[in-house]
Simulated assay, not measured.
Amino acid sequence: MTRTICTILTILAFAACSSDPTEPTTTPTESMYFPPLTGNTWETKTIADLKWNQTAVQPLLDYLALKHSKSFIILINGRIVLENYFNGHSATTNWYWASAGKTLTSTVTGIAQQENLLNINNKVSQYIGTGWTSETPTQENLITCKNLLTMTSGLDDTTDDVDPASLIYKADAGKRWAYHNVYVKLQDVVAKASGQTWENYFNTKLRDKIGMNGNWVQIGNNSVYTSTSRSMARFGLLMLNKGKWDTTQILNETYFNEATTTSQNINLGYGYLWWLNGQANYHLPQSQLTFQGSIIPNGPSDMFMALGKNDQKIYVVPGKKMVIIRMGDAADDVNLALSDFDKTLWDKINALYQ
């Protein structure tokens, strides 16, 4: 009996020490790396260092090239594992973030709140004045900054125009989730609350503090950010580290946690302008349908994402200490932020460490 018990205990101990072969291999005690704010220095790790599957790299790169990608980066613990450029793009070329840049607006709104310049629970009109919509004063006063962060303004989403004549009542704020360009009004809120231009406040409080390059470009009614792929990776790294860049807390962790968890009970896959994987259900842009299950079923369940038109991507995976960047043209003949491209891409990424 004693020998049997010892055998069972030995088996259990071995099982407890065994690692999941599908998980990327990282050194548990390895520190998070942050590249210098200036220059091109950036530490790397190799596929061999991580004991990943080298034979899976080329199929991934071939797929990315086939699907009109411009750049692709994988960071583990802040270190570059893969960095590849395609179709005439380079490390010094700027490219647009499209709606992936909504997360920049979310982050800077949080910074302004922690500086006591605004409160996201306050109504938008408190900062930019009344009459910014075509709603009645009572309806308009229901819309808070948080409603803009969570896409629950209740405004008609059939147009991306954000002039007052186009911002028409559809439902009371907080009662309907609809993907809408009206979030850009948060940039006006931050500008008014800070007494600075949006771009100046953004550059001072976020861009320059983590060594990004880039600038905001006005395209129609939308303010779109453009930068190098490494600058996008820097932002992803900041968010992987819960708003902290090395020893400097740029965005407080309380707001970070709010931004990257379900923000309302209509679309469980949405935080503060961040998409959330691994939830029980989700909505897609331009749809009122509820889809069951995870947004990217074969992607990590703890992943949160910045997603933009023509497949601009920031995937942040805390459990794997991973950031993934993809910039480029639309992978397929669609222009959506979410598409089948995500699923196939994650099949290729998963093959790296399975």
Score class of each variant (00 low, 15 high):
residue 111 I to H: 03
residue 94 N to W: 14
residue 210 I to C: 00
residue 258 E to C: 08
residue 4 T to K: 15
residue 207 R to Y: 00
residue 159 T to E: 04
residue 104 L to E: 01
residue 222 N to L: 05
residue 212 M to E: 00
residue 278 G to P: 11
residue 323 V to S: 01
residue 124 V to T: 12
residue 15 A to E: 06
residue 116 N to E: 11
residue 117 L to C: 04
residue 50 L to T: 06
residue 32 M to Q: 11
residue 257 N to E: 15
residue 248 T to N: 12
residue 254 T to W: 05
residue 312 Q to Y: 06
residue 282 Y to N: 12
residue 231 S to F: 06
residue 84 N to R: 15
residue 44 T to S: 10
residue 98 A to L: 10
residue 160 D to S: 08
residue 173 A to N: 08
residue 80 I to D: 09
residue 347 D to N: 13
residue 78 G to D: 00
residue 85 Y to W: 06
residue 213 N to G: 09
residue 228 T to I: 02
residue 344 T to G: 02
residue 319 G to K: 14
residue 5 I to V: 13
residue 142 L to E: 13
residue 4 T to I: 15
residue 346 W to A: 02
residue 134 S to Y: 00
residue 169 Y to I: 07
residue 236 G to D: 01
residue 314 I to M: 09
residue 84 N to K: 14
residue 42 W to Q: 05
residue 107 T to A: 05
residue 302 D to F: 03
residue 266 I to S: 01
residue 310 N to L: 07
residue 192 K to L: 00
residue 52 W to E: 05
residue 163 D to K: 10
residue 257 N to K: 13
residue 271 G to D: 02
residue 155 L to V: 08
residue 117 L to K: 07
residue 284 L to H: 04
residue 3 R to T: 15
residue 284 L to C: 13
residue 157 D to F: 14
residue 2 T to C: 12
residue 209 K to L: 01
residue 187 Q to M: 15
residue 90 S to D: 09
residue 65 A to Q: 15
residue 48 A to V: 09
residue 96 Y to N: 13
residue 133 T to I: 10
residue 100 A to H: 01
residue 95 W to D: 15
residue 277 N to M: 04
residue 8 I to P: 05
residue 238 L to Y: 00
residue 322 M to C: 11
residue 101 G to E: 04
residue 140 E to M: 07
residue 64 L to H: 00
residue 10 T to L: 08
residue 262 T to P: 06
residue 263 S to P: 02
residue 263 S to Q: 03
residue 27 T to L: 14
residue 67 K to P: 01
residue 209 K to A: 00
residue 163 D to R: 11
residue 335 N to G: 15
residue 92 T to R: 08
residue 334 V to I: 12
residue 119 N to M: 07
residue 120 I to H: 05
residue 301 S to Y: 03
residue 283 H to R: 12
residue 115 E to N: 15
residue 247 T to G: 05
residue 105 T to P: 00
residue 122 N to S: 15
residue 130 T to W: 10
residue 276 L to K: 03
residue 292 Q to Y: 10
residue 159 T to L: 04
residue 73 I to T: 06
residue 297 P to M: 06
residue 104 L to K: 04
residue 293 G to W: 03
residue 24 P to C: 09
residue 168 I to N: 10
residue 26 T to D: 13
residue 349 I to Q: 04
residue 67 K to E: 13
residue 142 L to N: 06
residue 25 T to R: 13
residue 29 T to K: 13
residue 296 I to F: 08
residue 157 D to I: 11
residue 175 K to Y: 04
residue 142 L to G: 10
residue 275 W to L: 08
residue 284 L to Y: 10
residue 70 K to H: 11
residue 77 N to T: 09
residue 13 A to M: 15
residue 70 K to F: 10
residue 243 G to V: 00
residue 50 L to W: 02
residue 76 I to F: 12
residue 333 D to I: 06
residue 131 G to T: 05
residue 40 N to E: 14
residue 45 K to R: 12
residue 3 R to W: 12
residue 161 D to H: 13
residue 52 W to C: 04
residue 130 T to I: 07
residue 349 I to S: 01
residue 345 L to T: 09
residue 107 T to L: 02
